[in-house]
Amino acid sequence: METAMSVNESFVNEPTSLVMPRRRVIGAYLEEARSECLRYMRAPGFMLPIMLFPGMFYLLFGVFMAKSEGADAARYLLASYGVFGVMSPGLFGFGVSLALERDGGLLTFKRALPMPPGAYLLGKMLMAMAAAAVVILLLLVMALTLGHVMLSLAQAGALLLTGMLGVLPFCALGMFVGTLIKGQGAPGMLQLIYLPMSFMSGLWIPLPLLPKFLQQIAPVWPSYHLDQLALAAVGLDQQPLLPHVLVLIGFAAGFLLLAARRLRRNG
């Protein structure tokens, strides 16, 4: 191991220009987040699928086909397609980009640079939250105009907040997968998690219409708990919310720890 850190005296009297003022450290975090958001908002290959899939599904099932079922169906599907839409910037924005950047050497380069600790992950997190907000806003606009869903401002705001915070557990899951698989293998792996999990949580077809067995195991999936919160946000669910919040926090913390451990060990 390293021998004792004997700091040579000639290096102790550093010129004052070497001290990083707090303002500049905060500035570095902001720059990192700004760059991360800019680069993905400019990448159609990333933004289009994230917006198109939930948008098209909602248009098809929530707006056109739900017309006969009444506004409550459109309201219900707004919540579940919202959750479906929020999962992907977390899983793909975080997981795939981490896997690619580990492969392409960008992560190594950033680790060699004096980037403040955590700025990389924080930047990606904020990017995923921004992308989640875009998806929810898109669905809200469709629901309010085409779907004739009546929502109070508070309800719309609650759904937006649920989406922006609800992306975080999926960031953690994506990050963990991104540390397991390098490069191009990650998108396929994440699809294998994303699509079945969405289906089994009742995001495509409401849970009560699914087989009994799937209904029983639904609480295993984080997307099920986020869906319950989203349903409550649009005024459709009156259960206590705290258990769902706690499950999601636990889920996020667990995968974050696992991923951080793998990153530290393997880089």
């Binding site: 500035g27 570095a28 800019l38 990448a43 392409g104 050497g105 980037m115």
Partner: peptide, 28 residues
């Protein structure tokens, strides 16, 4: 300062933005 053999930088960022980001890590 570091120049590595292979680092794929974010493709959609402009050169000026990359400079601005990297410079933000340094005190002066």
């Amino acid at each position: 300062g570091v120049m590595l053999q292979n680092a794929e930088l974010p493709p959609t960022l402009r050169v000026g933005e990359l400079l601005r980001l990297t410079a933000s890590y340094y005190p002066a």
